[in-house]
Simulated scan of single mutants.
Amino acid sequence: MTDEPGGVDREVDDVLVALADPTRRRLLDLLAAQGEATATTLAERLPVSRQAVVKHLSVLDAAGLVSGGRVGREVRYTVRPAALDTTARRLASLAADWDRRLATIKRVAEAGEDDSR
């Protein structure tokens, strides 16, 4: 796949950047376990402020990993698995491409060994 503006690779990049932070990964874990939570309830489970949680949730939202919906005065966040699924498929495809390339290198190297004997 090529990296086109707004393409799949850009989405994958955004997900990987968002997941690079351990606090954001922990937020995703908490949301996955709870199903839905507010920034306040999430902050109670983390060693960071509510404002920091909101900033992390904003990054996760921009990457398509969570969504927030207003219920009264609260914003409740939930996990959106589609972006993570797309990223997992892209990484699996990339791994398969590398496996094929490495298998080709191995065949060429082994053929070279046979020729030198």
Score class of each variant (00 low, 15 high):
105 I>R: 10
114 D>S: 10
86 T>E: 13
57 L>K: 04
38 T>Q: 01
9 D>K: 13
94 L>I: 11
2 T>L: 14
13 D>Q: 13
65 L>N: 01
61 D>R: 12
108 V>G: 00
55 K>P: 00
16 L>G: 07
20 A>L: 03
106 K>Q: 10
86 T>H: 05
108 V>K: 05
87 T>P: 06
66 V>C: 07
27 L>G: 00
71 V>E: 13
8 V>Y: 06
19 L>S: 04
65 L>D: 00
2 T>E: 14
39 A>I: 05
101 R>K: 13
101 R>E: 14
29 D>A: 12
64 G>Y: 02
7 G>N: 09
13 D>M: 09
31 L>F: 08
9 D>R: 15
19 L>C: 11
16 L>H: 08
94 L>W: 14
20 A>R: 08
90 R>C: 09
4 E>D: 12
39 A>R: 00
6 G>E: 07
32 A>D: 11
87 T>K: 06
95 A>R: 12
75 V>G: 07
36 E>I: 04
99 D>R: 15
38 T>K: 00
81 P>R: 13
1 M>P: 10
48 V>Q: 02
52 A>C: 03
113 E>T: 07
111 A>Q: 04
25 R>E: 06
66 V>L: 06
36 E>L: 05
1 M>Y: 10
63 A>K: 05
46 L>Y: 01
58 S>Q: 10
25 R>Q: 08
83 A>E: 09
41 T>I: 04
62 A>W: 10
116 S>Q: 08
109 A>P: 02
19 L>T: 07
21 D>C: 12
45 R>I: 00
14 D>F: 00
60 L>S: 09
40 T>I: 02
116 S>T: 00
58 S>T: 14
31 L>H: 05
85 D>M: 14
7 G>K: 08
112 G>F: 06
84 L>S: 10
56 H>L: 01
79 V>Q: 11
20 A>I: 03
92 A>E: 13
72 G>I: 08
13 D>N: 12
39 A>E: 02
116 S>P: 00
10 R>I: 09
113 E>Y: 00
111 A>E: 05
76 R>L: 10
74 E>Q: 13
86 T>Y: 03
71 V>R: 11
80 R>Y: 05
9 D>F: 08
22 P>G: 03
55 K>I: 09
20 A>M: 04
42 L>I: 07
81 P>I: 11
115 D>V: 13
70 R>F: 04
40 T>V: 11
76 R>K: 14
86 T>N: 07
86 T>K: 11
42 L>V: 01
36 E>S: 12
91 L>W: 13
24 R>N: 06
59 V>T: 13
6 G>K: 08
66 V>E: 01
49 S>C: 02
28 L>Q: 04
79 V>M: 10
71 V>W: 06
86 T>C: 06
103 A>S: 13
2 T>V: 14
93 S>R: 15
18 A>K: 03
99 D>I: 14
49 S>N: 06
60 L>R: 06
84 L>A: 15
30 L>A: 05
11 E>T: 15
101 R>H: 14
101 R>F: 14
95 A>Y: 09
104 T>S: 07
32 A>W: 06
61 D>V: 02
31 L>R: 02
14 D>K: 08
25 R>N: 02
12 V>C: 11
61 D>F: 01
47 P>N: 03
63 A>E: 03
111 A>G: 10
